[in-house]
Design a protein around this nucleic acid. Sequence first.
DNA 1: GAGCACTGC
Length: 690
Amino acid sequence: MNGPALKVILMSATMDSERLSSYFSDCPILIAKGRTYPVNTIYLEDIYEHIEYRLTSQSAAALQGGLKTSKKHLRNQVGSGRRRQDLVWSGFGDDAILEDSLVNPLYNESLYKDYNAMTRNNLALVNEDVIDYELLEDLVIHIAEEGESGAMLIFLPGLAEIQLLLDRLTASQKFKDLATEWLLALHSSIAPDDQRKVFRIPPQGVRKIVLATNIAETSVTIPDVVHVIDCGKHKENRFDPHRGMSRMLEVWISQANARQRKGRAGRVQPGNHFCLYTKYRLENLMHPFQLPEMLRVPLVELCLQIKLLSINNMAAFLQKALDPPKLESVETALATLREVGAVNEQEELTALGYHLAALPVDVRIGKMMLYGALFGCLSPVLTIAACLSHKSPFLVPQEQKNAAERAKKAFSDNAEKIHFEDDAPQQSDHLAMVAAYNGWRQIVTKKGAGAARGHCQENFLSMPTLKMIRDMRNQFAMLLLDMGFIKFSQAIDSKAALTDFADNLTQPFNFHAQQPAVIKAALCAGLYPNVAAMDEKSVVEGHASAGSRRAGLSSLQKPRWSDGRREVFIHPSSVNADVLEFWHPFLVFHEKVETSRVFLRDTSVISPYAILLFGGAISIQHQTGHVTVDGWLEMKAAAQTAVLFKELRIALDSVLRESIEKPQENMSSRSTEVIRFIIELILDETKIAV
DNA sequence: GAGCACTGC
């Protein structure tokens, strides 16, 4: 056949067609697009030109100061009376420095010859890196008063910014005088029912104004939008392979994002796209496309899948990708696979790696599921796995924040005392998820969907998320069954009985499903080395009797935590955020994200036993009676106890190897004994004093 | 004292 090769590419609706075309410039690509109307673009300079707005050196200074995105900082930035003070606080105390910093280094007089003096003044002073809420407010009011009818859609980077503008508009007298507006927020953490409100059509004479994140860029389409206001920024999650964690950064959008946002205006009639950035920035400073995903995310799962294809030279293979990742990123991913035990020192896929590749989850979550099956706590571990890989079922409606937090805390405190045999507060976000899911599941089966919906309302749970969690649990359970990790005490006779079999508490894989200590041990075994330890100075021996599990560690102030390399913070949404007294000085977590600080999203307090059994290398300091795990996790233990744990670890490793290499076969009686002994140890820590 | 958004085996 002659002529250019024909390439057929199936595209999802959200794929960036223009970026794709740029990759395949050698052959024509036909792109089908929905019908749209022309959209008029109004840049920052045009906004300044057309609305009465003067950026004074005072207000510009406030914009200069607010480079950080913390909420406190956001609030300071927009407060009108305290700007001078804020400047001092920001380190701009000296007026001479202040004046210097007010000059926009990007300002190019020659570009704006045809604009009026005030516009030029504003452009010379403005710091585009900071969102100007005063301008935003004026612009919204301007459009509300004079713009043609139709909904307004405002793109902002995050929830804090949405709330800030919402508060500003509600407080604005001018805006109140209009009294004909619908103000709505759109964000992924808003309950689906509230999200749906953005689709309603307002009555004649009322204008709908939606404040949204980039959820409205592709995921949610509001048909009647006529005016788009684009602040030009969004948040991006970037994985830093060097530090081994993700960071949420507020960055400039790309030209492609800007095009997509603009397109949100012209779906029912010609529209307007108001940009809070200059034409110069769009054309010369913004990247044509967003940083490709392969360069932003951890490559662990991708590398595991590639290993499964028996491709040995990982780095060379990935260099063939459209956007080859950095070598460092590949190295980090391989190091994680080695750490988890999915590949050996020679980088060959192990039996464990082979099983993990078949599970559609993060490798550590996959490992946690295998441990859950082996240690008889499958049901709760599947729930935790589903929550961590999808999303938490807990809702936090802004208006009922405190009540929602109390509801979650009640699940963690095991308030109903029906989910776990241990009735103590569990200090665990993960066990709160389990309690919430189990409670919901019981109500669904006993009283039906209607009652369950009421239960969700009362307890601030998301019904769609719980349903998704249920489906994911079933999927995971079927995969584990196929692999041979799930064994029934008596054969299941029909396919129907397999539905929700993972919930069956009479089966061996669930013998310990109601014992928090066992579940937490499985968590630690899977998620390790994602653990944090209380700062030495924060550890104060508690009031209860020594040696007892209830001993507790009390601290008058909030304890400080470390991941071994830096100070880390329990995320404020965690049930452990305000706890002063912990059962043990150790936490296990799944995700560590840096925003304003390094936060641990979901945490569970775990005992030193879990770390001794499932953590890294144990080293014993015979003289001092201290044991160190992985060189930084320190605990007190008699030398002979530590030696016993070291031996137990060797026995456990061989049991795991046996069951992972031949999951279909029944475990040898010795292995069964080892597992039984370890579970006894986990359940009754007084057996060996640590 | 804080939460861009998707997807898939």
